Amino acid sequence: MTLVLFIGRRLAGVLTTLLVTSILIYAALALAPGDPAAALAGGTVPDPARLAAIRAEYHLDDPFWTQYWHWLSGLLHGDLGTSLVYRSDVADLLAGRTVNTLFLVVYAGVLIVVLGIGLGVLAGLRGGRTGTGVTIATTVAMGVPTFALAIVLIWVFATQLSWLPIYGSGDTFPDKLRHLTLPAIALSFSYLAYVARITRQAVAGELRSEHVDTALSRGLPRRVVVRHHVLRNAMGPILTVSGTVVASLVAGTAVAEAAFGVNGLGSLLIQSAQRQDLAVVQILSMLMVGVFVVVNTCVDLANVALDPRIARGDRSG
């Protein structure tokens, strides 16, 4: 019953967060300068009758809460609105770009989880020069901006070595792997370093704990102690940080996609914000917040599966 209540509270928190976020996003963009009706009408001097028809069609003269309700109810029924710039449904714009962004995020997420956790565990278990080397390397890597690393990757692997393409997203699966390798490395680099550092601290902390010393003093093999005591207990903070980082990748794709010419959601967000395409910005902003909230909720539930005491609010003993 406690677990059911915990899940219920988390789901209620997700819905509340998304509702409040939708209000804030809609209000912020409604206050943005410019006239959406004039953008939809086109032309330098739109016809007043045409402007009035557009305002009536899109409820632009309605009170704020009426406009918001029309937008939210349409969103709940699958109507994402109409792009002011592209003059097409927002859903159609997203359809062709979602796959590229999803592929990039998954690719970068795999690099972060596999390499970040792997390096952190290695450094935490071995310590000494290995631990110091990983700490120094991750400290430097965490300070490298995505756009700066993108320039270096393009110069080395595309211009000098001609190993990988620097523009586009590819068509087939192998082609996408080649095209999105450099963007995935640029996107994941600093996040990977952060996960590696947190993992090292968590593993090293567990190695120094009293229960690990007790298990070793009883003659248990080190590999058994590491697997059942060190890694299992360290997995909580590692999973939390990894989940938060992977959830943040969706928002971080904008810089990587722009640098490498990837036709994805991040680059679309930048273009739409520059052109004041409010309908597209609203949906993409909601999508990014929604992914972040949902992924973090899944991480919370995974932590409960690892340690059911969290659902009871009891981490003692």
Score class of each variant (00 low, 15 high):
Leu5Cys: 08
Val113Ala: 15
Thr139Arg: 13
Leu76Ile: 08
Gly116Asp: 05
Val280Tyr: 00
Ala108Arg: 09
Gly317Ala: 14
Leu80Tyr: 01
Gly81Asn: 05
Ala234Gln: 08
Gly118Glu: 03
Ala41His: 08
Val304Ser: 08
Ile23Pro: 10
Arg223Trp: 11
Leu102Thr: 09
Ser73Phe: 08
Ala49Leu: 13
Ala254Cys: 02
Thr214Asn: 11
Gly133Ala: 14
His228Glu: 12
Val14Asp: 01
Arg227Pro: 00
Leu301Tyr: 06
Ile270Cys: 04
Tyr86Leu: 10
Tyr194Trp: 11
Thr138Ala: 14
Thr172Ser: 15
Gln67Leu: 05
Leu278Val: 07
Gln274Gly: 06
Pro174Ile: 03
Ile185Pro: 05
Pro63Asp: 12
Pro183Ser: 08
Ser22Met: 01
Ser22Gln: 02
Gly170Ser: 13
Pro33His: 10
Leu161Tyr: 09
Ile136His: 11
Gln160Leu: 14
Gly8Arg: 09
Ala37Phe: 06
Asp171Asn: 15
Met1Ile: 03
Val289Met: 02
Pro183Val: 03
Asn233Asp: 10
Phe6Val: 03
Thr21Trp: 03
Val245Glu: 04
Met142Trp: 02
Thr82Tyr: 09
Val114Gly: 09
Thr253Asp: 06
Leu164His: 06
Gly219Ile: 05
Arg200Ser: 01
Glu257Asp: 13
Pro33Gln: 12
Arg218Gln: 09
Ala53Pro: 00
Thr135Phe: 08
Leu80His: 00
Ala52Ser: 12
Asp300Tyr: 06
Gly127Lys: 01
Ala12Tyr: 04
His77Glu: 02
Leu268Arg: 06
Trp71Lys: 01
Val45Leu: 04
Ala41Ile: 05
Thr66Ile: 08
Arg129Glu: 00
Thr199Asp: 01
Thr101Gln: 14
Val280Asn: 02
Leu122Phe: 06
Thr181Trp: 03
Ala258Arg: 13
Cys298Lys: 01
Gly81Pro: 07
Gly313Thr: 02
Gly170Asn: 11
Val294Thr: 06
